Amino acid sequence: MLPFIGILSTIISQLLGIWFKGELTTYQYSIIQFVKDLILFITSVFVSGLIHLIIKNQERMEENKNLTIENFKNRYNALKNQTDPHFLFNSLNSLNGLIGYDDERAHEYLEQLSSVFRYTIQEHPVVTLSDELEFTGSYIHLMKIRYGEALSVKIQIPDRHQGYYILPFSIQTLVENAVKHNIVSLNRPLYLVIKMTEDETIIVENNLQPRQDVRDGDGVGLSNLNERYWLMFRKNISIEANDSIFRVEIPLIKNMDKYSDKFIIHNS
């Protein structure tokens, strides 16, 4: 800044000498030089201070952004870590129900469970729809081992949407929630449909036949999923229910570019 001010002062002095040549006394010329130098000094101080404030403000904004992202990661990971033990507990509880009752199906269940857990230990906060559907299919296979023909699941997702992005465990959570909270028996089969809407969202719906022996409010299922969606995408899931149908709609993300600063995105 000082070299620039010095050069500017010299140029202005030369211009003043040319403009007022022979018209000013030495005293008048010195007064003009003093005023000029004072204005340049004040201007340089002001500009230097303004640049300093802009730099400090940018540094604070960057620090706040980093703190926000770090806080987001901590909150998101806390929710994710809450989901994994919940899934493990329910899976092992289902396996326990088969042991001694149907050992052959229990053995098949255990084999499928090992492949399912390979998905649960991945650290990617966002996955492609095809990955989530593959995992959900494995989970549905586990449930079919347990419930047989009492559980029916139809997946109606066009191939062109398989590359869209979704939160891990999102569809599986909705399937698990339906099985957990509804009667599943040969006399009262549970029917689930997983389908795409015209707005390119995913709907998971089931016929409503509530169990009376299940406590609500475990803090892990739908509320957890909704909070994870809000943290990552600033979007909410949608829940609708009537006397016969329970339906949950979850967003799909076509382009992850504007979310890429939060996490590294997993592609198959």
Rank of each mutant, 00 (worst) to 15 (best):
F20L: 14
I18Q: 13
H266N: 08
K235G: 05
S238G: 02
M256V: 07
I203S: 00
N255T: 02
R215A: 13
D159K: 07
I183A: 07
Y139R: 01
L110M: 09
G219R: 15
E59C: 12
Y101L: 15
R247A: 03
F41I: 04
G137N: 10
E198R: 09
T136E: 01
M143Q: 06
G148V: 00
V193R: 07
E176W: 00
I157A: 03
L133W: 02
N77F: 13
L95A: 06
K262F: 00
L142E: 03
E108W: 08
I18D: 10
N236W: 02
H266A: 05
L67W: 12
L186I: 13
M143E: 07
Y27Q: 01
G97V: 15
E62S: 13
T43L: 13
Q58H: 05
L208G: 00
F72I: 10
F41G: 05
N93F: 12
T25S: 05
Y119H: 14
R234H: 11
K195Y: 13
Y147L: 03
K195L: 12
F135K: 04
T120D: 08
I11W: 11
D216G: 03
L16Y: 12
V35D: 02
L231G: 09
Y164G: 10
I121N: 06
T43Q: 07
G148I: 02
Y76R: 09
D216P: 00
T173Y: 01
I54M: 13
L16I: 10
E249A: 02
L95G: 00
I99D: 10
I166L: 08
S244F: 01
R160Y: 13
H161E: 07
T43Y: 09
D216F: 04
F20H: 13
I171M: 05
N177C: 07
L252M: 06
E134C: 07
Y27H: 03
L192I: 15
R146N: 05
L53I: 15
A241S: 11
M143C: 02
N255F: 02
I264R: 00
E249Q: 03
G17S: 11
I31H: 00
I194R: 01
V248L: 01
